[in-house]
């Protein structure tokens, strides 16, 4: 769920547009038609999409780092290959999403600069450190679990390139959550040290996972517009509840316990009741004060800066060879 709107304020309405065109556009979207890159669209729709898709892409790319932290220390060859393939997939998903955003008239370099300058946001979840191997299990199980919940409906989102990227992503991600849960399962059934590791990871990742669904609905001013535009299909609170209802029994099945004293099945509602999320923590992390936010941005900045001469070299080489080819003709 890297698509949560984290601006926390209402998006400014754009310049006046032809009401007839806007109405026709709204009607197409309401009719579940797909909008394609060259179609006319309201400026606010375009801007909201660029923000949401690029934020989603950034989250995939920054999200490579916490898990990447354990590739070289994976406990056996099978786990090493799985983890590397998974983190690689995330890079691919970032790439698909950047490409989808590029169809809206923004370049990947521009989006990258926005991320590195701190102007663009990415999912808060990746600002927490991965301390033990169990964190790799917890991320696959909880973080990917939460992501899938939001991404599956986005396969039918109104913007064609975004929807198609999501179809591909959902197909590829189907193994991610399962491998995470499998890791947790092995740990929970393992030695006492491993079980402790698993519970500790659940304790640390539970709240940040709930935060992935974004602020409560009454603090999410753009929800209504985004739902009307079919770029969001369920509200933050609905998805959060769904996540808790699905995840709690999964934890219990392997003898782990979600760290929330208020967690209790509510027969009348047919849902779990759960404690209030620490929203002060959430907003602090959104503003860039996550525990390892600086490290994450430092790593991305370093990769970008260190790679500059490589990207430049390939560009110069291509120009050189094209010129040589032309001269030879």
């Amino acid at each position: 769920m890297y698509t949560t709107d984290m601006t926390g304020k209402k998006t400014a309405q754009p310049v006046a547009e032809d009401p007839a065109r806007v109405a026709a556009f709204e009607a197409r979207v309401a009719n579940d038609e797909f909008i394609e890159p060259k179609d006319w669209m309201p400026e606010a729709y375009r801007r909201t999409l660029i923000r949401q898709i690029s934020q989603h892409a950034h989250s995939e790319i920054v999200g490579m780092l916490p898990e990447g932290n354990w590739i070289t220390r994976a406990p056996n060859l099978r786990r090493k290959a799985i983890l590397l393939a998974k983190v690689q997939d995330e890079g691919g998903h970032g790439l698909y999403l950047y490409a989808a955003a590029e169809t809206l008239g923004v370049s990947r370099d521009e989006m990258t600069e926005a991320l590195l300058s701190g102007k663009a946001k990415y999912s808060t979840i990746f600002n927490y450190p991965t301390l033990t191997w169990a964190d790799i299990g917890a991320i696959g199980w909880l973080v990917d679990g939460a992501a899938i919940m939001n991404q599956v409906p986005l396969q039918r989102t109104s913007y064609g390139p975004y929807a198609r990227a999501m179809v591909r992503i959902c197909k590829e991600e189907s193994f991610h959550q399962r491998q995470g849960y499998e890791i947790m399962m092995h740990l929970a059934q393992g030695t006492p040290e491993q079980k402790r590791m698993a519970q500790d990871a659940l304790d640390r990742w539970w709240q940040p996972s709930l935060m992935m669904f974004g602020p409560p609905d009454d603090k999410s001013p753009n929800t209504e517009q985004s739902m009307r535009w079919r770029i969001k299909r369920e509200t933050n609170d609905e998805l959060r509840q769904k996540f808790v209802d699905i995840t709690v029994p999964q934890a219990e099945a392997i003898g782990l316990k979600a760290p929330d004293p208020a967690l209790k099945w509510n027969e009348a509602r047919g849902h779990y009741d759960f404690g209030e999320v620490d929203w002060d923590e959430f907003w602090a992390v959104v503003k860039g004060d996550g525990p390892v936010a600086k490290e994450r941005m430092q790593a991305r900045r370093k990769a970008w800066d260190d790679g500059a001469w490589v990207r430049e070299a390939a560009r110069v080489h291509a120009v050189k060879r094209a010129a040589a080819k032309l001269a030879a003709e």
Binding site: G91, A303, R311
Partner: peptide, 15 residues
Amino acid sequence: LSEWCGHAPAIEIDL
């Protein structure tokens, strides 16, 4: 090579 994952000069090179 796996040490590069997440740190390569471009996403395509990372893959």
